[in-house]
Amino acid sequence: MKNGPFLLLGLFTALGVSFAAIVLGAHGQLGRLTPFYDDAESQAYPQRMQGVAARGQLVYADLGCAACHTQQVRRPDYGNDKARGWGERQSVARDYIHQPRPQLGGSRLGPDLANYAARKPTEEAIYGLLYAGSATHPSYRFLFQERELVGERSAKAISPTGALAPKPGFQIVPTERAQTLAAYLLTLNNTYDYPEARPFVAAKKGEEPKK
């Protein structure tokens, strides 16, 4: 190789082709997905997140929750996501079209959260885990405030016990960030059955493939 321009041309072709094929190709395929309108329910899916949940997603992202929790369910015959109760169907691209920054995640040190709200967790349970942690979950006490109890106890105040209990005359209240995070987690529910999410059933031997 002698020729400088030839080298440069090769480099940019290589980069351009891979960018165009992978990123622009995927964009061309998925970039214009629209919500699915269900005539029977007169409702379009997926539904937009409410403002408070959208803010919660920012908290989820900036704390780095995706370092341990994925939000992508694999199809029932690939892995055991269904057996673990994480979702009846695989996640599809349409699930994420309203999310400004989908949190797919790449590591499962904790459970998948794509359909967390479908498992009916309570707000108290979320606050309890965030405040006290567990053997496997860190306790994020900076998401809570210990406030002096003046007048009535806050409706959001949590009641940890033992060493974590607040001092007498004080209460532990989730901060606004914790509240938006909990609101976000309580909206994670992608259980609507899109046509493209139905598992592909291969025709058995000897049978005519279904038209």
Binding site: V23, R94, I97, R101
Partner: peptide, 13 residues
């Protein structure tokens, strides 16, 4: 930002 999971594709690229 591109839409939805195309972001994950671009990030992995």
């Amino acid at each position: 930002p591109v839409r939805g999971t195309v972001q994950a594709v671009a990030a992995s690229w």
